[in-house]
Design a protein around this nucleic acid. Sequence first.
RNA 1: GACUUGGUAGCUCAGCUGGAUAGAGCAACUGCCUUCUAAGCAGUAGGCCAUUGGUUCGAAUCCAAUCCAGGUCACCA
Length: 592
Amino acid sequence: MSVVAQIKQVAANAINQLYNVALQPQDIAVNATKPEFDGDYTVVLFSFVKQLKKSPDALGNELGSYLVENNPDLFASFNVIKGFLNLVITDAYWLGFVQQQSANKQFGTNAGTGKKVMVEYSSPNTNKPLHLGHLRNNFLGWSTAQILKANGNDIVKTCIVNDRGIHICKSMIAWQLFANGATPASTDTKGDHLVGEYYVKFNNEYKKQVDELIAAGKTKEQAEKEAPIMQATQQMLIDWEAGKPDVIELWKTMNSWVYAGFDETYRTIGSDFDKVYYESNTYLLGKDIVQQGLAKNVFYKKEDGSVWIDLTADGLDEKVVMRKDGTSVYITQDIGLAEQRYNEYRADESIYVIGDEQNYHMKVLKLICQKLQLPSADGIFHLSYGMVELPTGKMKSREGTVVDADELVSEMVNIAQLKTEELGKVKDFTPEELQQLNKTIGLGALKFFLLRVDPKKKMIFNPEESIDFHGFTGPFIQYTHARIKSILRKSEVGVTQPEVGSTLLKLEKDLAIQLEVFPSVIAEAANEHDPSKIAIYVFNLAQTFNSFYTQHSITNAEHEEKKTLRLQLAGLTAQVIKTGMGLLGIEVPERM
RNA sequence: GACUUGGUAGCUCAGCUGGAUAGAGCAACUGCCUUCUAAGCAGUAGGCCAUUGGUUCGAAUCCAAUCCAGGUCACCA
């Protein structure tokens, strides 16, 4: 049990004993003691002063005395200042903690919950390459899954590929018109980028045709509808749905190019899935559920034959769930897919990592599933994340202002390479080792940059300023790890027991306190689906270690027992950094 | 217009289930490499926590209103 949990427990018991008032541990507010006061943890007394009819001072002294007297292993002393009961934890407790956990390779991870959680992330369209926004989505989803796993859940990572629809047809039409049979091989271009080029070409041509039609006297609306390239695209979508062989053939070919490109990108960034769904296989799902919904009177049919649900009683609108021509709309597919996934995996929770522009849609989806009483309904959780914006505003693929994922990754690796060369600390590395190191650092910087902020918040990326390698960054933490490993290579971690009476220096204790909290941080990050909690924690830990490192020598400690303790502290720190960064999908080098 | 999310240092962000004098990083300025990796450490400076009212022992945190910014409100996905 964590120190904080123990304090809450014994404090609640103490109050029961002393005043015969029943309090639950969670009713006790325990904070880290502010640095300017003497103590490690602080119980805030104000909340029960009134209830117990005691002055804060008297209550603090009585409670403090009782706690120290009855828990001599845990508390060394206490002091009371203005309604705050500051508690000093015994050095023996921290020493015991460090010794015990420095041998525990699983430290921080929590026991199995038996819960199965499905995490859907990265749902790319197959008409263009991945961009910075996809990276945030990917890293968030992958990391959240990893954190939930560390917290004892069974995880299924999944992805729905939007491989059909009007957007793909746009690239296909443009390819037919302008490509002269170009292929990734013939142009030496990554497949997703090649297809993306034709998506851009489509939009340029479309704009040109619309402008011409407007110049010829059409209204904007007419022009947009009548532009020949758009009409051809719409016809192609109809042909696709009809299964016209040459269209299907082209569609398969171009998608295969894109998948080869995506696979390469996913491999580089370390993203993977247990199960991939394709929209071309799922877009017809959900129609039978619409029929059931009609039978249950959850849905109703309008005169024109379209099917609706009325959500006005829940503060939302009326939504279409099936068009008058009997084809399904987006949300219908989503209901169908939710149901199919549930039938296949029976997940207790199903997390959708999707941008906040779809907040309303996801709310509607969950509500409809609940009204249909689908077993998957209550487990739906929308992990909504804010858009990544440029200083100039939103990224727009049509305007070419997107930050390309592949380019950004390779730029990060290049910067890492320059820094590594400049510092010249690993001159004995083989070219392969160097390449690996630069990739670890460059990707680490990028992933940390995207994961360190609260997922809910939109974030701004300035391409002019490259992502930093100093301060609150991935490389800073990686560097701390490499430093520790360097020491550990030179000195075996001993198992000598520090003497009972030995005392901890300020920074030794600070480190121990911070390390002790790691399991709670994982639990919190898991409960809140928030990897930034881990990122912030690991950064603070590395910072504390670096302060400790510059002030106290480890290998030349004052005496052998100190050395053992410090090696244990350093070893545990390295391990927690490695585990924590691993939860973010960031590797940590032995040397850098 | 309705609903919704946010506004904290020059910049990027923590802190938000109420607790002591609001924290980091970057940028700026000072110091520290004959001692375990200076991608580091120590320090200086930088704030009316958007505004106004309320709730109470106590508010950046909770409530209300206002201002500003983003998102959504398609038989698009």
